[in-house]
Design a protein around this nucleic acid. Structure first.
Length: 862
DNA sequence: TTTGAATCCGTTAGT
DNA sequence: CGGATTCAAA
């Protein structure tokens, strides 16, 4: 199938190919002008294969880089791939290789060629913008249109009928239904002509599109849809090969785009790892692709990679037994290339999320306290289904002095301070960003409330010949009737924008000065003083991204936006350089990774924890409620992805809550059952994970060896005794037997049952902060202990707060600094763990973090 | 009319 | 818990 004999091959390529196994070799060297599916299970060298295939196309088939499109799932994956390629082919200029996410490639194409469609200079509407626009169109419906919604078709758009008798139209369903249509490639025009259309939806879809058009923005789905329209009308003529990575996560419009991009395609993916159906991804694309080419009498070859280089066989068997439960699945035979095995996953059933977190912390400290341990924090990951699950774990890691790092998800970008900052950058970059103006004009408070805002917005919508910025100037100069206070406040706001714009112009394209501009904005708009230290930290993350930002390929004939505008587009597509190439490793070094399963896709660690294997968490409550096989299957694949991230040691755990004995976050549904996906281990030893590799000296030895260290001689039995005692103190915290290493853990001191007078103080002038969730008590050993139920009788916090307020009494709490807020990236908690501790007081919470800036602070009110 | 506090309410992943 | 909504006080 190769186009040349090995002798004629490029020496680099030759060398490259020699490192591949038979299947990989076959996949890489498949005919360049053909259709190919590579089914790549976890750890089968997928990235290596796709990268080598690109190299093969460049070197052997001599396809110029600009004639190849490679789509990846994330910008990060694209960066990694291009780095690998640069290393492989050090002298080749790859700047023109079209590589990136579908969204960014499409956006680039639209920027470059979109003029005939009237799309030049468009920006990106993010999720918040979408919601803003949808709310707007719902408010702008006239009486006649509103009438449409009284029928059955309108039902699904209604909600919130609890408080007001009149049901209200809500944006959620509108957004997701429109998105679903778009990802199937259905435009609003097409939909409005469909005989089976939903009249309400069709109406909203049209309004929504006009709204986007008016504001000159594209939403994520539009990037794909409009690009499809573009390449249909004006085909790309130069593209000789299209490669699609993570094919299992493509949706219909992406499949159609792939067909349109070029006739020769290579796709790589794994149906078992399809976990993005919520974004309308469809596994059926594998079959659709085959059928599509079949209809054109063209063959689509399939190559399956089955050598797993990542995980031990035990881990593979375990993961496979999870997947086996899925009906109608083509079972896969992954063969581990490991010769060592460390036994089946270590597991435990616990009583609460707190206990589970403690269990995890114990496992980690145990691993890290092995003599000359071969395992470092950066070798460990904790993967959860939902982002909020990290909170309890973070707290526990903090109090054990375990350094960790959050792999950032969407949550970071929806933090208040982050969105505000982005909005401010947007108004500086773009005179016409109405939404950003409306969202910043009263933050910080400038005395502009709902009514005034309405008046202003009405005025802003009037005249299309002036920019939003100009119109706002006119408004202050008398266009809108405003109080003098508001008038002067807005003037000041506008003047600061003006100054910032001038600064932006002055720095031209010198992006090294962007941080200065950034500081100017935060100080002049008086943003910093609105924020807690931890929020400022988040803002500095943006500043860092801004200073690291390099605009993409300036040699293009794209009408240039200013550099800030380019930065914002890039952020809108979530593709800002997350971390620069080399510093990435240094940055994460010495830190445990904490991530959602979705965020961990494509990554691997020697040690992986998968907690929260309870019904309602995984499968998530939403999937259970949806009550469809597809939803449950997707959750199962999610688990599969999590499990297959592990190379050597896999820890799984779950908890079941019995009644209200344990403190629970009351707003969450009680977890009562282990996950249905792990039925098959429930029958085994249920007692909790005392089953451990440390039982066998030879396993411990080979663990050291495989990690490139020599196992020192040490007393494993003694090590295990310590471990078991600590385990006991977690499982039975009030049992005196849990006393470890001669340290009295205070079982006789009624930990957790102190009197109310300990926490309630009468204060006079001193304004005290009430920190929800922080009323923990410090016990005599320096450990913190959450309040137990019963402390305030039947009173809940919500009830007690106003009572205290009325009597001039306030609830105060000891600043507890080891509480972790959700989603705050990379805090470095105190000292890192020593590696030499063998039998140190692991069960005791570290006090290293005490006294540092309160991390719950960001939710306080003054 | 704006603001801050009280209260209600939902519950997922992220290009 | 935290966002949205409602209520009450400036």
């Amino acid at each position: 199938m190769t186009t040349s004999t090995p002798l004629q091959m490029h020496p680099t390529l030759d060398q490259l190919l020699s490192t591949l196994n038979t299947n990989q070799h076959q996949a890489v060297t498949a005919h360049p002008f053909s259709k190919l599916q590579i089914i790549a299970g976890p750890g089968t060298g997928k990235t290596k294969v796709i990268t080598s295939r690109v190299a093969y196309l460049l070197l052997d088939a001599k396809i110029p880089p600009e004639n190849i499109i490679v789509t990846t799932f994330t910008k990060k994956a694209a960066n990694e791939m291009i780095e690998r390629l640069r290393t492989m082919l050090d002298n080749m200029n790859l700047d023109k290789l079209m590589i990136g996410t579908f969204h960014s490639i499409c956006f680039r194409l639209i920027m470059r060629y979109g003029k005939p469609l009237g799309l030049s200079g468009f920006g990106i509407a993010d999720e918040r913008d979408k919601e803003f626009y949808v709310k707007e169109i719902l408010n702008e419906l006239n009486a006649e249109e509103r009438e449409l919604f009284s029928g059955r078709e309108g039902e699904k758009f209604k909600g919130g009928g609890k408080t007001s008798l009149e049901p209200v139209l809500i944006p959620g369903p509108v957004i997701s239904l429109i998105s679903s249509l778009k990802s199937q490639g259905i435009t609003s025009d097409q939909y409005s002509q469909s005989p089976s259309k939903d009249k309400c939806l069709s109406l909203l879809y049209s309004h929504y599109q006009s709204k986007l058009q008016e504001n000159r923005v594209l939403d994520f789905d539009d990037c794909l849809l409009k690009c499809h329209e573009l390449v249909s009308k004006f085909p790309l003529t130069n593209i000789e090969h299209v490669l699609v990575d993570e094919f299992q996560d493509t949706n219909e419009i992406q499949l159609q785009l792939m067909y349109k991009f070029g006739t020769n395609v290579t796709i790589v993916g794994d149906p078992d790892q399809s976990i993005y159906a919520f974004r309308n991804a469809q596994v059926i694309n594998f079959q659709k692709m085959i059928d599509y080419y079949q209809r054109q009498n063209q063959q689509c070859s399939i190559i399956t990679l089955d050598h797993n280089y990542r995980s031990t066989n035990d881990i593979l068997i375990f993961s496979e037994s999870v997947m086996k439960q899925e009906k109608e699945r083509k079972s896969k035979q992954l063969v581990s290339q490991h010769t060592n095995d460390f036994g089946s996953p270590i597991y435990a059933q616990l009583k609460s999320e707190y206990q589970e977190a403690k269990w995890i912390a114990l496992q980690i400290t145990t691993l890290l306290s092995l003599p000359t341990t071969p395992i470092h924090p950066q070798d460990i990951a904790i993967l959860v289904r939902s982002a909020y699950q990290t909170r309890v774990i973070e707290t526990e890691l903090n109090s054990n002095g375990i350094p960790y790092h959050m792999i950032r998800g969407k949550a970071f970008w929806s933090r208040k301070e982050v969105t505000v900052m982005m909005d401010y950058l947007r108004i500086i970059a773009n005179e016409n960003d109405r939404v950003a103006v409306l969202r910043t004009i009263n933050y910080p408070k400038r005395g502009i409330g709902e009514k005034t805002l309405e008046k202003i917005d009405e005025y802003l919508k009037l005249d299309v010949n002036h920019s939003v910025y100009e119109k706002l100037r006119f408004a202050v100069q008398g266009g809108v009737n405003l109080s003098s206070k508001v008038q002067s406040n807005i003037s000041k706001y506008l003047n600061t924008i003006q100054q910032a714009k001038e600064k932006l112009d002055a720095l031209r394209d010198d992006h090294t000065k962007l941080p200065e501009l950034f500081d100017f904005i935060t100080s002049e708009f008086e943003l910093t003083k609105e924020w807690e230290p931890s929020q400022v930290e988040n803002i500095n993350e943006i500043k860092k991204l801004l200073s690291e930002f390099t605009p993409p390929s300036p040699d293009d004939d794209i009408p240039p936006k200013n550099i800030l505008g380019q930065f914002i587009d890039s952020m809108g597509l979530n593709e800002a350089v997350e971390e620069q190439k080399q510093s990435r490793h240094a940055h994460y070094k010495g830190q445990v990774a904490l991530s959602t399963i979705h965020g961990a896709k494509g990554l691997e660690w020697p040690v992986v924890f998968v907690p929260g294997l309870s019904d309602g968490l995984l499968p998530s409550i939403m999937a259970i409620k949806a009550n469809t096989q597809e939803a449950i299957d997707e959750e199962r694949r999610c688990l599969y992805v999590a499990l297959t991230r592990a190379k050597l040691l896999l820890y799984v755990s779950w908890y079941v809550e019995d009644g209200d004995k344990e403190e629970r976050q009351s707003w969450r549904m009680q977890v009562t059952d282990p996950s249905r996906f792990i039925e098959f281990i429930k029958n085994k030893d249920k007692k909790t994970g005392l089953v451990h590799i440390f039982r066998q000296k030879d396993k411990v030895k080979s663990l050291y060896e495989i990690l490139g260290k020599r196992c020192p001689d040490f007393d494993l039995d003694e090590f295990n005794t310590v471990y078991k005692e600590k385990m006991n103190s977690i499982l039975n915290p009030f049992n005196p037997k849990g006393i470890v290493d001669g340290c009295d853990n205070g079982a006789d001191k009624k930990v957790g049952f102190q009197s109310a007078s300990d926490v309630i103080h009468t204060t006079q002038n001193k304004k005290q902060k009430f920190e929800p969730g922080n009323e923990s008590v410090t016990n005599k050993l320096g450990g913190t202990q959450p309040h137990r139920k019963g402390l305030y009788g039947n009173l809940t916090k919500d009830k007690i707060k106003p009572m205290l307020r009325k009597t001039g009494t306030q609830l105060i709490s000891k600043p507890s600094n080891n509480k972790a807020p959700p989603y705050v990236p990379s805090r470095r908690p105190g000292s890192s763990l020593g590696t030499k501790r063998v039998s140190g007081p692991l069960a005791l919470p570290s006090i290293a973090n005490r006294g540092k800036g309160g991390t719950m602070g960001q939710y306080q009110r003054e």
